[in-house]
Design a protein around this nucleic acid. Sequence first.
DNA 1: CTACATGCAAATAATTTGCATTAGC
DNA 2: GCTAATGCAAATTATTTGCATGTAG
Lengths: 141, 141
Amino acid sequence: MPREIFQRFLIEKRLKLTKERIEVLNEVFSAHDHFGPEQLYLRLRNAGSKASRASVYRTLNLLVESGLVEKITRTDKGSVYEHTYGHTHHDHMVCSICNRIVEFYSEYLEQLQDEICKKHKFSGVSHSLEIKGYCETCRKQ
Amino acid sequence: MPREIFQRFLIEKRLKLTKERIEVLNEVFSAHDHFGPEQLYLRLRNAGSKASRASVYRTLNLLVESGLVEKITRTDKGSVYEHTYGHTHHDHMVCSICNRIVEFYSEYLEQLQDEICKKHKFSGVSHSLEIKGYCETCRKQ
DNA sequence: CTACATGCAAATAATTTGCATTAGC
DNA sequence: GCTAATGCAAATTATTTGCATGTAG
């Protein structure tokens, strides 16, 4: 459970489980899509939360630190996050026009990491592949 | 020659080949490393150019548009660029302990991009794969 | 009670832009 | 000469931070 993981993380760091942090956590895990800080803030407001932008940003940083959330990419319109709990590894394609993100997974890519690492005597832990280009909709324009 | 490619690009767009643009172009192609706008601006000043930050940014955008330069990534300290002319593509492995960067190239990875893009109806332009882990030296400790 | 957290507004920092002046073509 | 480019400073945008007040543990 994300809630428990976050709580343990906070206790470990001697931080407090406040109303705002709970609200942000819940909102982040209430959907499975990519989001930006402003978008998250608006969704919170819509849900009745009074958490400020500052708290949204601060909590987001804590969530990243705790490993529950990942900062996927930075666009010209700000950072994009996604929660990682209960999500298997995947990589991303980002449309350079509309910033749409398409997820994909390739078993072969996992093997490729091993091969490349062996060749360069590197001990690979994780990877992230980002393909930039144009999504179907934008290409047609 | 980058100079000629850029010149053709400018003519095509009915833009002018100014002193500042030439200076920026030369500075960008005088070295083969990654750079940020501010860094480039300082190097220009050091070389005697009086080009302003505004012109550096404006020219950098033109260079990207012309395909001579690529915006590699955005960090919390700003964008990172590298020139692409006469430089083959490569990816990076980063050691999480000593931050050493190992460059590598994989032909299969290029094919993989095509396959994945075809499958998801995405028009891939470029990719960047970053493998995080430990280099040989650090692993032994 | 005692930190730490919050909201707010001001501060940062990277990048863009409006405008008067300068300079390619 | 017409049109676009420059430098400057002000504007913009995303994010962070200082501070007085509120609140979790």
